[in-house]
Design a binder for these strands. Structure first.
Length: 150
DNA sequence: GCCAACGTTGGC
DNA sequence: GCCAACGTTGGC
């Protein structure tokens, strides 16, 4: 099992939305490295659900991969803000995975608290702040869950 | 709302 | 292939 971190703006889609929906296609990723990470994901992989552009920005909960990477349908939808005229169903450029809800963290782990932890200093969240899909190491995963009271 | 960081586009 | 211009992300 591998560990990941995926960002979403809670105003757009939050951990509460995922709790309500039970599962959701992670559409709208338009960055090649983020896409490549999603291609590596396997069913059962564990995901930190991070609220970006929030007050405070924080890891809010846990999700899991329930469907491996497949074409993101929004790239073909002319009405979608994620429409990509250079992509086609025959040769899709963008992919999504499907995530299932696991749980909320009893205590959200704020970015500031992550910054304060030496063991987490190398997380992509701190080093490559703009990447929306990131890999998380096992020791980082355990630390975040511990900080979140899980 | 500002703006730094940084990924992408496109002219050459 | 370089790099300036431009657009987006995301913390604050």
């Amino acid at each position: 099992v591998k560990y990941w971190l995926m960002k979403s703006e809670p105003d757009v889609y939050s951990i509460d939305d995922l709790a309500r929906d039970k599962h959701a296609g992670w559409d709208g990723v338009r960055n090649y490295q983020a896409r490549n990470y999603m291609r590596e994901m396997q069913i059962g992989d564990q995901v930190l659900f991070y609220h970006s552009n929030a007050t405070p920005s924080a890891v809010a909960g846990i999700a899991k991969v329930v469907k491996n990477a497949h074409a993101d349908p929004t790239q073909f939808d002319r009405k979608s803000k994620y429409y990509d005229s250079k992509s086609s169903p025959e040769d899709p450029r963008w992919q999504q995975v499907e995530l299932g809800f696991v749980k909320r963290l009893p205590k959200a782990v704020a970015l500031q608290d992550i910054r304060g932890e030496k063991a987490l200093a190398k997380m992509d969240l701190l080093v490559r702040s703009r990447l929306s899909v990131q890999a998380v190491k096992a020791n980082e995963w355990r630390k975040i869950l511990q900080m979140g009271g899980a």
